[in-house]
């Protein structure tokens, strides 16, 4: 009965993941391996970026004064738009994780505040390969070299995510593994300021246990995958800490604004 319960939970979380996220690893891999009917438009310099802005991300850069700003600020703005969309997807996903909506509302907020960026960077790896990153719902591909060529501090924004992604992708997780991993990131009992820690720890324990069993059956040849993934949770926390510091620096020194939802998340984070 317990095993059946765990399988049901894994299935519910996987279904919620497929339903709520616009992009997932299997979709991204089809595009990145050249098997999509239309290949993504490659952004690798200023000209191709301008073209992409007119077509792929016209909604993000048009009619808000952003089109006259410098290239780094425009890209940063697009990153923010994508982040906001992903936070809303993650919120809906979290609400579908059994037990989450029964938590104290302030604890739900705390779990999202601290979990969304870790989850986002874990999922971002699915859209990356060593040469670049899928953007605009998989319709574009921006090269790692082009992102690196931007001026500082913007050039430092994505490179740590590529480095994390290359190691993370080597674990060869599929979407069913990632769904449970993302749920484990969000339902984390040691976020600062949680009121009902015991309640969340119980939920976390159940999800982590299901993740361990799922990895055992889905990756029988990699006995150390579970401990490797637990280490990735720590790596993601470090990645987010550094990202938050970089965003604070950009906010202080650059002529750019931060979306109110992202401001809420970053404020008093670490």
């Amino acid at each position: 009965a317990q095993l059946a319960d765990q399988k049901t939970l894994a299935k519910q979380i996987y279904e919620a993941y497929l339903k709520n996220f616009n992009m997932n690893k299997s979709k991204a891999r089809v595009i990145l391996t050249g098997k999509a009917s239309t290949p993504p438009f490659v952004i690798h310099d200023m000209d191709t970026l301008r073209l992409a802005e007119k077509t792929l991300v016209a909604k993000m850069v048009g009619n808000n004064g952003i089109q006259n700003k410098e290239v780094e600020v425009r890209i940063f703005h697009c990153c923010q738009c994508t982040s906001v969309e992903t936070v809303t997807e993650l919120t809906e996903f979290a609400k579908s994780v059994p037990g989450f909506v029964g938590l104290d509302l302030n604890d739900q907020v705390t779990l999202l505040k601290y979990g969304v960026y870790e989850a986002m960077f874990a999922m971002l790896a699915s859209s990356m390969n060593k040469d670049g990153l899928l953007v605009a719902y998989g319709n574009g591909f921006i090269t790692r070299e082009f992102l690196k060529s931007l001026r500082k501090p913007f050039s430092d924004m994505m490179e740590p995510k590529f480095e994390f992604a290359m190691k993370f992708n080597a674990l060869e997780l599929d979407d069913s593994d990632l769904a449970l991993f993302v749920a484990a990131i969000i339902c984390c009992g040691d976020r600062p300021g949680l009121v009902n820690v015991g309640h969340i720890e119980k939920m976390q324990e159940r999800i982590v246990q299901v993740l361990r069993l799922h990895l055992q059956s889905n990756h029988p040849d990699d006995a150390f995958l579970f401990p490797k993934l637990l280490q990735k949770l720590a790596d993601l926390r470090q990645l987010v800490t550094e990202h938050a510091q970089l965003v604070q620096e950009i906010k202080k020194t650059e002529d750019t604004s931060l979306h109110p939802l992202l401001q809420e998340i970053y404020r008093d984070m670490y």
Partner: peptide, 20 residues
């Protein structure tokens, strides 16, 4: 609660989109 009003709103009402 005031500090995280958009997150609160997203949690309580899924049909309210966030402006980009």
């Amino acid at each position: 609660k005031e500090k995280h009003k958009i997150l609160h709103r997203l949690l309580q009402n899924s049909s309210s989109p966030v402006d980009l």
